[in-house]
Design a protein around this nucleic acid. Structure first.
Length: 413
RNA sequence: CGGGAUGUAGCGCAGUUGGCUAGCGCACUUGAAUGGGGUUCAAGAGGUCGAGGGUUCAAAUCCCUCCGUCCCGACCA
């Protein structure tokens, strides 16, 4: 991708009315644009990051045998009345009547929808277990949005739903999901904390939350300074357990639930078991706040100059930065690197703009691509170019003929 | 929904004891120079001062109402 032809409207100054670092940087690095409070567009660079994160999630979900599908956002309220959640989720539901006078809502979550689908297609134990998932936009009319995309009214979630014959099957699926979640967050460069949690309005018995401690967040945890034990903060007081506890702010990235038969019972999702008896499907549901995950990554991976993307979620792998657009030698070399690296499957951004070196360097720091190749007269005089590691700041001079190999080596590491 | 803050050009701001044609920086357009950390000079374009109403000879400025945005709280898979 060529910068001059792409759409990267970076902002030099901190936008007014932003406090969270991730909020500021996601706007400054032109990842997102706010339409109104809690409603954001994903600009090209932000959309690239979103797709990288989604791909990681897809890979890990598919690896444990989940099947991706896509459910509708537009729901008849009738279906929500069957479980009574038209009332329990009333505050956050966006509802309206269509032209036929039918009561509708924009989906805040999808248990009712997926259970209805399972009911229609699954009749036999032979079709179980199955886990279906989607990555989709959810709508919640939040009373108060927070920290940009951390808490929005329209946001992207990965939600998976498992259907089993019995509790043993559910527990197995649940464990698999839990392990996959840890892998997903680690691949996103985060160190998740898993805590037993309250299942709240979702219902069910056992549930776990995945959190990361961060400078901002809507949750709090207590960490035992002696044995490292972690407990979710409930009422603001330290756990009355042995040891010293410190309170930390955290962002909730994911939440998984053993639902049991709450939804299959109320929606009539039953199957015929091996013993000839009709039984309700045993369900679990597993959610990740995908857009929020991006905010958490930024919150924990930045410095004064900008974002420092973890390798696997970076919008590009490498940025080529010819210092002077007016220098044909440097531009030609940069162009040949671009072609070579693209051919090798590397995601490359070339800053081909005729801008001052300072502006290019600052923009590069801001958008935070892991590796930067600086191609300028100074080093070219010695037949060298430089690679700058965004995270460490370390500059390495390499022979101009070995650039591709050096980049490939680093991307593999 | 309670408490607090805030709204002037695309962005960041000044101007508010009422007073001339509403100003600055960045960005933008044109031209020239420059070229390793937001470079320099010159000439330009860009505004319902959040909206509506009121007071006044005169309102960005004072008063009332409403709206938007952010922070704290309540709420929240």
């Amino acid at each position: 991708m060529y910068w001059s032809k792409y759409f990267i409207p970076t902002l030099k100054e901190i936008p007014i009315g932003t406090e969270a670092i991730s909020h500021q940087l996601s706007l400054r690095a032109s990842l997102v644009h706010m339409l109104t409070s809690g409603v954001y567009s994903y600009l090209p660079v932000g959309y690239r990051v979103l797709r990288k994160v989604e791909d990681i999630i897809r890979q890990e979900m598919d690896a444990i045998g989940c099947c991706e599908l896509l459910l509708p956002s537009l729901h008849p309220m009738e279906i929500w009345k069957k479980t009574g959640r038209d009332q329990t989720l009333k505050e956050i539901m966006i509802t309206f009547d269509n032209k036929k006078g039918q009561h509708m809502c924009l989906g805040p979550t999808h248990e009712e929808i997926i259970t209805t689908l399972a009911k229609d297609y699954i009749q036999s134990y032979r079709q179980l277990p199955v886990t279906l998932y989607q990555i989709q936009t959810k709508f919640r009319d939040e009373m108060r949005t927070r920290f940009g995309i951390v808490r929005a009214c329209e946001f992207i979630m990965k939600d998976a739903y498992s259907f089993d014959r019995n509790m043993e099957g559910l527990k197995k699926n649940y464990e698999q999901q839990l392990a996959a979640y840890v892998r997903i967050f680690k691949r996103c460069g985060l160190d998740p904390i898993v805590v037993a949690a309250d299942s709240g309005a979702m219902g069910g018995s056992i549930s776990h939350e995945f959190l990361v401690t961060a400078p901002i967040g809507e949750d709090a945890i207590w960490v035992n300074t002696i044995n490292g034990e972690v407990v979710k903060d409930v009422d603001g007081t330290a756990p009355s357990l042995a040891g010293d506890w410190v309170k930390k702010v955290a962002i909730e990235l994911g939440h998984i639930f053993q639902l049991g038969t709450k939804y299959s019972d109320s929606l009539g999702a039953v199957f015929l078991d091996e013993d000839g008896k009709q039984k309700p499907m045993i369900m679990g549901c597993y959610g990740i706040g995908v857009s929020r995950l991006i905010a958490a990554i930024i919150e924990l991976n930045s410095d004064q100059a900008g974002i420092i993307w973890p390798k696997d979620v970076a919008p590009f792998d490498v940025e080529l930065l010819p210092v002077q657009a007016s220098d044909p030698v440097a531009m030609e070399l940069a162009q040949s690197y671009y072609t070579e690296l693209k051919a090798a499957g590397v995601d490359v951004l070339m800053d081909d703009r005729d801008e001052s070196a300072g502006r290019k360097f600052n923009d590069a720091d801001l958008i935070g691509i892991p590796l930067r190749v600086i191609i300028g007269k100074r080093m070219l005089a010695q037949n060298q170019v430089e690679i700058k590691d965004r995270r460490t700041g370390v500059m390495t001079a390499v022979s101009k003929d070995n650039l591709k190999e050096e980049i490939l080596k680093r991307l593999k590491a």
